[in-house]
Amino acid sequence: MSRHRFIKLVLAVALIFLLSGCWDGVELQKRAIVLMIGVDPSQQGDHNVTVSLQIARPQKFGSSPEASTGSGDENTVVVSRNGVDVIDAIRKIQLSIDRTLFFGHVRGLVVNQCVAQDGVMAFVTPLLQARMASRETWLFISKNPAENVLHYTPLLDSIPSTYLSNFFENRLLLTRPYQATLGGFHQRLVTPGVEPFAIWIGEGDKALSAPAIEGFAVFSEDKFVGGLNQKQAVGWQFIENQFPKSPLTFRCSKEQPGQFIVDVKSVKSRIRASKGKDGQPRATIVIRLNGWIEGGTCVKTTNQKELKALIQQVQSEVETMVQSSIKQCRQLNSDSLGVGRQLYRFSPKVWKGDTWWSETFPHIQTTVQVQVQLDFLQTYKDIHFNPKTSTL
């Protein structure tokens, strides 16, 4: 063996002793895998919150992804403790079980709206700093106790957190879903002129054992101030340019009963905020909707006049949803629409700070323009209607 090869062999052997290996590894059977975290107000005077952890029982999960056929307690267990803060309550849960809590699979943080009214960053920040929840974790605000949500055991999936995450993604289909997570919440919180939001949930279908989506929870800074119902949430999606490619149902008309379906191909929205002639900020929201009519009880003819009436009906209902969303955000004094963000970006000389905008936003004049272009399968013609403008 040459001297050069001998030196390489000695170095290779020496490097083996420098490898640390899995010195800090924890065996799977010694882990308590946390799937969801719930936060409720504490019923004890010396404690502030009650924290609930939904913990998986791996020995109850089969090798195949079949639906759960038994009670939820067979697959998961919910453990709750009171604490001065979230970390204190989680520490007490850790001391009460024989396994090490593992938060690598947490999919959702459920917060009771009674707690959220006082602010959520007081317990979101410690969870992120301690790496107990990732920035991609969904944030839910619940009308009901968060512990009840963690007890939901969907029959269509053996892992409750997986079912709920897939259900919310399928139901919302946001163009930018990250904004509904803990990371997105914090990102919007520190951005001038826009307030954060979360998914607002309530009691759902008992047969499926899953919560229902009420709409979007909106905030003033990090404090929950109210919610947008489902129609207002659709209007919010239009304004925020977050409406997905999805069908919508519209009424035929006030005179004619029935409904028709529009398969939305694309939605493009634009907000422009500037200083008006009176010196006060004003905003213009332009929404362009493209799609085709799939059918309905009032889609029976190729008469151009009737088809244009349907387009006008779509414009009217979209405008109503958008205006309702704007009105609700004004009443709650929560600019989750991002009007102030546009003012801050395009008219920085007008911007006078977050406090000024909080006082100005409820009184800002907003103009809405809705443009609709639809394809009718009966005629294969492209029919569009002039923009409809309204001011609120």
Score class of each variant (00 low, 15 high):
Glu255Ser: 13
Val318Asn: 06
Glu319Val: 05
Gln113Glu: 15
Gly108Val: 06
Gln280Leu: 13
Gly202Tyr: 02
Gln313Asn: 14
Asn303Asp: 15
Gly184Gln: 07
His47Arg: 13
Thr366Asp: 02
Phe250Cys: 14
Gln313Cys: 10
Glu359Asp: 12
Ile326Glu: 10
Glu319Thr: 10
Ser269Trp: 11
Val106Cys: 03
Gly193Lys: 02
Thr379Gln: 03
Ser266Met: 11
Gln230Met: 08
Leu9Asn: 07
Arg282Ala: 03
Gly258Lys: 04
Leu307Asn: 08
Gly353Ser: 11
Trp138Tyr: 13
Ile293Glu: 07
Ala207Ile: 15
Arg345Pro: 00
Gly183Ile: 01
Val234Phe: 09
Val13Ala: 12
Glu136Trp: 05
Lys327Glu: 13
Trp357Leu: 03
Thr50Asp: 10
Gln29Ala: 08
Val267Arg: 05
Leu101Asp: 01
Gly227Tyr: 10
Gln312Cys: 03
Lys381Asp: 11
Thr366His: 02
Gly226Asn: 06
Leu109Lys: 06
Arg176Glu: 12
Val26Leu: 13
Asn148Cys: 00
Thr284Ala: 14
Asp24Lys: 08
Lys143Pro: 05
Gln43Val: 13
Arg345Asp: 06
Val262Asn: 07
Gln232Ala: 08
Phe103Met: 00
Lys231Asn: 12
Pro154Glu: 05
Leu392Phe: 13
Ala217Trp: 01
Glu27Phe: 00
Lys206Trp: 07
Thr69Trp: 07
Phe102Asn: 03
Asp98Tyr: 03
Phe376Gly: 12
Leu127Lys: 03
Asp222Arg: 10
Val106Asn: 00
Val77Arg: 08
Asp157Val: 08
Leu139Arg: 01
Cys329Thr: 15
Asn82Tyr: 15
Arg57Tyr: 03
Arg345Trp: 09
Gln331Tyr: 11
Val49Ser: 06
Gly296Ile: 12
Arg31Pro: 02
Phe243Pro: 04
Ala207Thr: 15
Pro160Ile: 03
Gly204Glu: 01
Asn170Trp: 01
Val225His: 11
Val10Tyr: 03
Gln237Trp: 02
Gly104Ser: 04
Gly183Met: 04
His47Ile: 04
Ser220Gly: 12
Gly353Met: 08
Leu182Phe: 03
Ala12His: 04
Val110Asp: 00
Asp73Asn: 14
Asp46Gln: 12
Met121Leu: 13
Lys60Trp: 05
Ser158Ala: 15
Trp23Cys: 06
His363Glu: 09
Glu294Lys: 12
Val225Cys: 10
Val267Trp: 02
Ile287Lys: 05
Val314Trp: 05
Trp357Ile: 03
Ile271Phe: 08
Ser274Asp: 10
Leu289Phe: 02
Ser324Cys: 02
Ala212Cys: 03
Val111Cys: 05
Arg288Ala: 14
Cys252Arg: 04
Leu95Lys: 06
Leu109Gln: 05
Gln242Ile: 01
Gly21Trp: 06
Asp88Ala: 12
Phe6Tyr: 04
Phe219Gly: 00
Ser325Phe: 00
Cys252Lys: 08
Gln256Ser: 11
Cys252Tyr: 07
Arg330Pro: 09
Ala309Cys: 00
Leu174Thr: 00
Arg345Val: 10
Cys329Lys: 01
Asp222Val: 04
Glu240Leu: 09
Val267Leu: 05
Pro387Tyr: 05
Asn229Leu: 10
Pro247Lys: 05
Arg5Met: 11
Gly62Asn: 12
Gly62Leu: 07
Asn82Ala: 14
Leu164Lys: 00
Asn144Gln: 13
Leu28Ala: 04
Gly215Tyr: 01
Ser20Thr: 10
Val110Tyr: 02
